[in-house]
Every structure is written in C-alpha cells, then in structure tokens.
Amino acid sequence: MNQTLDRPTASPAVGAHGDEALSLADVNAFYGESHILHGVELRVKRGELVTLLGRNGAGRSTTLKTIMNMVGSRSGSIKINGQETLGMKPHHIPRLGVGYCPEERGIFASLDVEENLLLPPTVRSGGMSLDDIYAMFPNLYERRRSQGTRLSGGEQQMLAMARILRTGAEILLLDEITEGLAPVINQKLAEVLITLKSRGMTIVLVEQNFRFAAPLADRHFVMEHGRIIETIEARDLDARREHLNSLLGV
C-alpha cells in the first residue's frame, strides 16, 4: 500500500527539488478579464500535509483550480513531481497522480454511489480497492445503490474524498472538506487524513475550520488577495497563533 516506498528515491540528477511534490512559482491566474492570483509561491514536499488558509475570496479555491488547469488562463510555473505542467491539457494533469476534490463536492446526480466511486479513471497503480474504501467508509457501502445526490452532506463529502483515493492519486487537493459538516464527521475525516498521510500521500487542504486543520498540518499558507502572505510552520504555530488569527480576521 505504501507506494512512495516502491519508487526510487530522488536521484542526484533530479537535484534539490527532487522531493517536491508540488511547486508553484510566480503563478498568475485569470477568469476572463479578472486577474485572481497574483504571483503565488508555494512548495510542498512529498508526504507533507499543508493548508491554505484565508478569508473568503482570498483565492484558495482558485489556487487548486489553477493547479488543475480549470481556470480561464494561467501563467508562471507549476511543477508536479518536478514536471512542468503549465502547458498541459486539463485531463493530463490528474494522470501525474493528482486527485482533486472540489469545494462543491461535485457528486453526480445521474450516477449511483458506486458509479460515482468508480467514475474517475485510475491514474496510477496502488490506489485503494473498492473493498478498502468500503471498509474506510461503511456508510457508502450501505448506500452504494442510492443516487449520489440523495446522500447526506457528510456522506457526499466522504464519497467525494473516497472516489479520488481509488485512482491511485498521491497528491490530494481537498477544498473545504469540512464545510457544513457535524463534528463527528469531521473527526472521521481527520482520521482518514491521518491514515492517508501515514501512507505517504501529499495533501493540500483548503480550510476555514482552523481547529480541524491545525493538528494535522505540517505547514500553513495564508492567502490574501490572490497572494501567499505568510507561511507558518506547525512548530511555530503556538507562538504565532495571535498573528495568524489577526490575518484570518477571527
């Protein structure tokens, strides 16, 4: 299951950035005429869990969409596992091992739960099997023949997460997965994230719920007006809590 161990470790030829799963440099993004991201800089090492924090409209969802090439246009450099992806077509990016869970969850109404689970094509070997997934999310098994959008919000969120785990993706971009969910479900999601991290996955978590994210993350990026304005390491969190709160306006 631990696919990162099977791969050869970074060779000297790959250089100092060989252990970087994701690296954004001077990234700008546009929706039509509106300029949303202004020079985003972001580096995530393999196996790290980082958060993107910020107020509403700061550009966190747009950052994930830009990585997936789902925005109008983008510039700068976006490397995935060291490979430049700026010129890539949207459907090629997931095949580098990236799984994306959108803010609105994107459960398909015309598909039942199991069809939703099986929908995303496998991008790499080593993904979780359907059995593994049902073991992790027993609710989904019980409701596997239900229409996708008939599930509760929490179940839909689990479904949205679960379906990218099947594909073998090892870089997960998760947008506000706790939004509007009950504490017990958040607890469950936190456990899932801890499991995934222990399996060597790289996770970028866009979160409003800082209490959910704080114990999980290695590092926090704070965004404002389409820029990363602050990077806070987990070990500095206690000391800089007040500063962070003022940045987030809480």
């Binding site: 949207p90 994306y100 398909f108 598909l111 594909t167």
Partner: peptide, 19 residues
C-alpha cells in the same frame, strides 16, 4: 457513466483525467 457525468459536469470530468 462517463457520458452521464460529462453531461452534468464536464470540467470535473477533465479534472479526473477524462479526455
């Protein structure tokens, strides 16, 4: 299923790697 899902949300289908 690809067709039905593509009918609903083609952008997300691309983000899953479907051409």
């Amino acid at each position: 299923a690809y067709l039905r899902a593509g009918t609903e949300n083609p952008a997300l289908m691309q983000a899953f790697g479907v051409n």
